[in-house]
Amino acid sequence: MHIVDGALSNPVVIGGAMMAVAGIGMGLRRLDLERIPAAGVLSASFFVASLIHVPIGPSSVHLILNGLAGLVLGWAAFPALFVGLLLQAVFFGFGGLTVLGINTLNIALPAVLAWLLVGPMIPRGSPLAGAIWGGLGGALAIAGTTAMVALSLALSGDEFLPAARLVFVAHVPIMIIEGLLTGFAVLLARKVKPDLFTLSRGIPA
């Protein structure tokens, strides 16, 4: 899902960076001293979770779990996922520097949208109902991210259209897997620690 430096046109890179800054600002406004440790440790867990490789047929995919990050962190998913991408670029050489903004936007915006859409349903009803909504949110977030990656490529030039289409089709199985995993993760958290999902709303903006 990473886009590298030099692949996108300048308007896309600059527009993406500006929107990412706005999103990070929204997230930081909601992070006070009380919530920074929780956000930091969760941000680190999502970083570690992205190292998990899940088998699919003869191959395996690594997780992104941005939907789950959105459901748990709300707007704070923006700065948390930005930090993850920054560390990946600086210490592991994944992604790029000038495209950090657009990459953050592509991953974090669908996460926040999933939270706005299905977030209110997660703590309600039975754990199973919450898990089904959570799974839907997880799948939607990946679908959104893939669509946004494809869109950023398509906006940069027509020659990327086949690649963009391919990216979307290749990610359909990943949407299903991420949805399933997010659902099960929500199911467990609802049973063991229900207030995990109230963290993202506790504080007035």
Binding site: A38, V41, L42, A44, S45, V48, A49, I52, V54, P55, L63, L65, L68, V72, I177, L180, L181, T182, G183, F184, A185, V186, L187, L188, A189, V192, K193, L196, L199
Partner: peptide, 17 residues
């Protein structure tokens, strides 16, 4: 497998919080 991985991620989040 997918259920186990999902529970694993959920458990990591619970422990993290």
């Amino acid at each position: 497998s997918y259920r186990s991985f999902g529970y694993l991620v959920g458990m990591m989040l619970v422990r993290a919080i």
